[in-house]
Structure formats: structure tokens, C-alpha cells
Amino acid sequence: MSTAAKEQTTPEAFFSVDMRVGRVTDVREFPEARRPAWKVTVDFGDIGELQTSAQITNYTREQLIGRLVVGAVNLGAKRIAGFRSEFLLLGGCTADGTVHLLAPDAGTPGDPVA
């Protein structure tokens, strides 16, 4: 994963991404994925529950269930090994590709991220 800075963008492009607080409600194994991943379901309040494929197997199922997370919910769905991934779970990536989830200290599912 590259750590080089990306090109400048506009505030309009950045603010068009709908980032929301959510709570993890389910985590399932995803053996069909090319790289180790979980199938994660997150409650985003009024938006509803959305699912995603996430390469965050450095977290156990028990560490994820009930956890507050941040997701980008308006990027469109994508098929991954036959699974419909509906949002992007956000985290910081280390040089070795490990993802450390962004986690709000508090909040309610569906809260917009400022």
C-alpha cells in the first residue's frame, strides 16, 4: 500500500462522500475471498443495515461485534466473490497492509461524520 500523498481534490468532491457512524451487528467468515476477509454487517440507523467485505482479519469476531465504526455508504455496491459489498469500512492502513479501523469515541448509528 502506497503512503504517498494523493493529488489535491476539491471540497465538493470530498463532501460528496457520505460517511456515517455505524455499529457492527454481524461478522461471518468469507472463505471465497482471495485475501482473508470477513463479511461484516453494520447498522447505520435510518439508512438500515449494510454489508461489506473487509480485510480486517486482524480483529476477531468478538472484537468487532457491537463496535462503533465509520463507513462510506454512498459509493455504490460491488460484487466480491459473489458477495454484494454495499459500503466501504474505513481504517488506517500500515505499510504491511494491516487495516486499523476508524472508531468514533461515541455516537449513534446513522450519525454523519463531520
Rank of each mutant, 00 (worst) to 15 (best):
D43G: 07
L101V: 12
S16E: 10
A77Q: 13
G92L: 15
V42F: 07
A103I: 11
V17F: 09
V27I: 10
V24E: 10
K39P: 13
F30M: 14
F87Y: 10
I65M: 05
A95Y: 12
T94C: 12
H100N: 15
D18S: 02
S16G: 05
S85R: 09
G76Q: 06
I47F: 10
G66T: 02
R35E: 12
T10H: 01
D26C: 12
I65V: 13
D111Q: 08
P36H: 09
Y59D: 02
I80N: 08
A54P: 11
V113R: 09
D105Y: 15
G45R: 03
T94Y: 12
E49A: 11
K78P: 08
E32P: 11
Q51G: 15
M1C: 12
T52M: 13
D111A: 08
P31T: 02
A33E: 01
T3E: 14
E49T: 13
M19C: 08
T41M: 08
E86R: 08
I80W: 09
Q51W: 11
L89W: 04
E12M: 00
T25K: 10
G91C: 09
F15V: 14
L50D: 07
A5R: 10
D43M: 10
V69K: 04
P109T: 04
C93F: 15
R67S: 04
T108M: 11
N58T: 01
G48W: 03
I56R: 09
D96E: 12
T94G: 14
K6E: 07
T57E: 00
G66E: 00
T98I: 07
G91A: 02
G91H: 04
A72D: 00
H100E: 14
T41N: 10
F44R: 09
V21D: 01
K6Q: 07
S16C: 08
F44N: 01
L101R: 01
G91F: 00
T98S: 06
D96G: 03
T60Q: 01
V70W: 03
G48E: 11
R79M: 14
E12G: 00
V99K: 02
A13N: 01
V21S: 03
V27T: 04
P109R: 08
V99E: 08
L90H: 03
E86N: 03
F83I: 10
L64S: 03
V73T: 04
F87L: 10
A33Q: 02
D26M: 13
L88P: 04
P112Y: 06
D18T: 05
P112F: 03
A5P: 00
A37S: 14
